[in-house]
């Protein structure tokens, strides 16, 4: 190895250590794909409760007036809630699983400064969004829930991009874009939600897996 190569190798080492110590780089593309699949399955389960019920979603008063045999508030408060909670949990666990595998393979501890930093920066915007969405539900503004999910999640991703692989920033931009468009199509939130949390996650995960993990 000549001096030139040696310097190059040293510079690469420096860059690697800077990245390893400042960004959580174990995030696996497979995590994105699995979370996306969970979202699509969740959306499929939720569809019977939501699709074709645009009027109920937009205006709960109208829903109450129109409801003949079913109490939609019960449906919305129970089944949809459990589907959403189950989807969230499944997505989180599967995403964690693939990232855990990747961190093991790379020999980087999953819980360290970078993981802590990433987590705090994701949780803060998500928690704010969660409380906001909770209030939306309380005021029966169901039509704004899906756009709200997309917008706050997008903001959380952009915030997170400083502490993990930078490409996640573009996923964030796209989620926000979908959320904004959804604001003009209130009542069709499930489609936008499935596109954002399902399709975009799978597309992002596939791209990242191809770029970083396929050949390693």
């Amino acid at each position: 190895m000549n001096e030139n190569q040696q310097s190059l190798e040293t510079l690469r080492d420096i860059k690697r250590m800077m990245e390893r110590s400042s960004r959580f780089i174990s995030l696996s593309g497979l995590s994105g794909i699995s979370a996306g699949i969970c979202a699509l399955v969740g959306a499929w389960f939720a569809a019977p409760y939501v699709v074709g019920k645009k009027d109920y979603i937009i205006n709960f008063k109208a829903a109450v007036n129109l409801a003949s045999d079913q109490d939609y508030s019960i449906i919305l408060n129970n089944w949809l809630f459990w589907i959403a909670a189950g989807t969230f949990l499944a997505a989180l666990l599967s995403a964690f699983f693939f990232t855990w595998i990747k961190s093991k393979r790379e020999g980087i501890p999953i819980w360290g400064i970078t993981a802590k930093r990433l987590l705090i920066n994701v949780i803060v915007p998500l928690l704010a969004g969660g409380i906001f969405l909770f209030k939306l539900l309380q005021y029966e503004t169901f039509g704004l829930v899906a756009p709200g999910c997309l917008l706050f999640y997008g903001l959380a991703l952009i915030n997170a991009s400083k502490y993990t692989l930078n490409e996640i920033r573009y996923l964030g931009y796209l989620q926000i874009l979908l959320g904004i468009i959804n604001l003009w199509f209130v009542g069709y939130g499930l489609y936008f939600w499935a596109a954002g949390f399902g399709v975009l996650h799978i597309a992002y995960g596939t791209y990242m897996w191809n770029k970083y993990e396929k050949n390693s």
Binding site: D13, I14, K15, M17, M18, S21, S22, P109, I113
Partner: peptide, 20 residues
């Protein structure tokens, strides 16, 4: 060199984190 690389992009790192 590794220690310096990590410290230059972080505000502060403790001993155990550096070790890891």
């Amino acid at each position: 060199l590794g220690i310096m690389s990590a410290l230059v992009v972080n505000d502060a790192i403790n001993f155990n984190e550096l070790k890891e």
